[in-house]
Design a protein around this nucleic acid. Structure first.
Lengths: 340, 340
DNA sequence: TTGTAAGCGTTATCAG
DNA sequence: CTGATAACGCTTACAA
């Protein structure tokens, strides 16, 4: 009872190996009954095609690679999980690799995937990525951190942030601080523009009712918890009637760091300070109070990326990415502002 | 400039394909200078071996599969990330799959990996796993949720919990509650035994100074946030001089849920209640106050699992798992108890 | 529609 | 130590 091959199946089914192969690959030109008989034998023998042999001949590996900066980041782990589910639905499997945000490692990983003959790569570029050029001829879809010149898929960060800030405006806030992401990051800048969109649009209201008070309050920071905390400290370190009554953070982790900062300064949330995050990671609903946040449609993004690689969906044009809408998830960190 | 193969290298180096192959595989019987020349040509041509062809002949895929219940769980994502790094160091790559704690899906995934001809599987069994039998002949190492009858690697949960509870005992706590994991889970029971070890041992102290007050306070719960919260509510819903002054939770997520419960009940942490979690996920240091927790050595576990699969390390005997020691990470949720 | 047979790019078995 | 050469298990023209 050693390894059963395609010839065993062929012999037992009374057909040729070619026919069995055709059955395996859903080739249209096989009669119904022959197909049925062959499939019967396949099941009976518990035959499993050898992927190596298959891929050697056909140049198709049914493998797709995914390279992300850091699997520890809940946003990326959800992305990978979603991609895995989507790929599995099509008979594909996922090879994960993490670049740890290190361009050299990233380049190495991409090369590995190339030589593995994966059918496509989903890439979330590391932050110092620009130096790298991607191999041509292998379908690559850039996700989340879009890069000019490559077809990409992402959430609509800009509009998502705008929705979040408008949520604060609607509550009556007029001094809204913003914790931005690192300046060189594409999504960080998109998010910043969303904030500016909202502020600007508010300033244009005819009756001036939504006019923003004072200059924009922006603090640049990395996306992580500690950076959010110090950015929060920075924004809140001024007289009560000058400091923001609400802060929009570019990531949930920043927002949580900011909550910590407020807590340390004795500023109650949301009574004296509203906070909104961005991402919608599970953690957001586990804070006290629960964080209000703008949720990215990660599953949609992942599914679309897989679909594009499998040619189930036309790839986005270069420099014209596919964007998916975000959604405000109301928690307990937002409330109307107190009078000064 | 199409695909360069082993024969191109052979021709240019003036040797046979066999020799090139031997160079590629570090076969000892190749003279230094021949090897050098071949390696030179390889670099020059940028030749990359084709993994499919390689694996077809050699039956080695340099691929290892990892099946976990849920990548969204930070514990598992760190496990995967560590395994990926370890594997990459040996020229191996990782195929990830998530079972979503669903036995049928898990069985399917394992079958997929088998037919992929991976060289080994790292498995964290789903919770309703018992029904499944693993394919023989393919090296499988069970991680974290050990199963009798399979060789496994894990953190020493039992002793880790004991350390954590003893930390509370040393602070002076005598009514220590315990939120356990689901009753059918192996690690949950290990953790429970660790708690009982500590309590029991404390009761044996000669001078009786550490004698526990009252019966053990144990609440069973799932490992997640919400369950931790309701378990916390349950344990704390009694008169002040009867309720625990400290709670040990079997997971960080439970612990954080428990913090929330305490907060909602108006019980200050750590002033009136100390809390210790288990796992040491990044999230633990992002709470307010920072959670004291018992950290699992995930990286060690992952590296060992990979090493075993690559035969770099002898596999653990069945029913005699390799265990790695945990460590108490002191945060801000633990303090001496208040007098009643 | 189905059978036949030629490879795909390596590794492994022999000789030499 | 090295060179031929036969597999490895399958896909895919090309014929029938």
């Amino acid at each position: 009872m050693s390894k059963v091959g395609i010839r065993d199946v062929a012999k037992l089914a009374g057909v040729s190996t070619g026919t069995v192969s055709r059955v395996l690959n859903d080739h249209p030109s096989v009669t119904k009954d022959v197909r049925a008989r062959v499939e019967g034998i396949i099941k009976e023998l518990g035959y499993l095609p050898d992927p190596s042999a298959r891929s050697m001949r056909s140049k198709v590996s049914r493998l797709i690679g995914i390279v992300i900066p850091d699997l520890t980041n809940p946003f990326f782990s959800e992305l990978v999980q979603s991609a895995e589910q989507a790929a599995a639905n099509h008979g594909y499997n996922i090879i994960v690799m993490t670049s740890l945000d290190h361009a050299a490692k990233e380049a190495d990983r991409i090369k590995q995937l190339t030589s593995r003959k994966v059918d496509g790569i989903i890439l979330v570029p590391s932050n110092d990525f620009h130096t790298l050029k991607l191999p041509k001829g292998l379908p690559i879809v850039v996700v989340d951190r879009l890069m000019p010149g490559y077809s990409g898929i992402a959430a609509d960060h800009r509009n998502g942030v705008r929705l979040g800030v408008e949520h604060l405006l609607k509550l009556g806030h007029r001094r809204i601080g913003f914790i931005s992401g690192p300046g060189h990051s594409v999504p960080a800048n998109d998010r910043l523009r969303g904030y500016l969109d909202a502020i600007e649009h508010a300033g244009e209201q005819a009756d001036g009712s939504a006019k923003m008070a004072g200059p924009p309050l922006i603090a640049e920071a990395a996306f992580d918890y500690e950076s959010g905390r110090s950015a929060g400290n920075y924004l809140l370190a001024r007289a009560r009637n000058e400091r923001p009554t609400a802060i929009f953070a570019s990531s949930d982790q920043q927002a949580i760091g900011c909550m910590r900062a407020a807590h340390d300064l004795g500023i109650p949330v949301p009574a004296a300070l509203s906070i909104v995050g961005f991402d919608g990671i599970p953690l957001a609903s586990m804070t006290t109070p629960r964080l209000t946040t703008v949720k990215q449609p990660i599953q949609d993004v992942a599914a679309a990326a897989v679909a594009v690689l499998l040619n189930k969906q036309t790839a986005p044009e270069l420099d014209d990415p596919i964007l998916f809408a975000c959604e405000v998830l109301e928690g307990e960190t937002t409330a109307p502002p107190q009078p000064d």
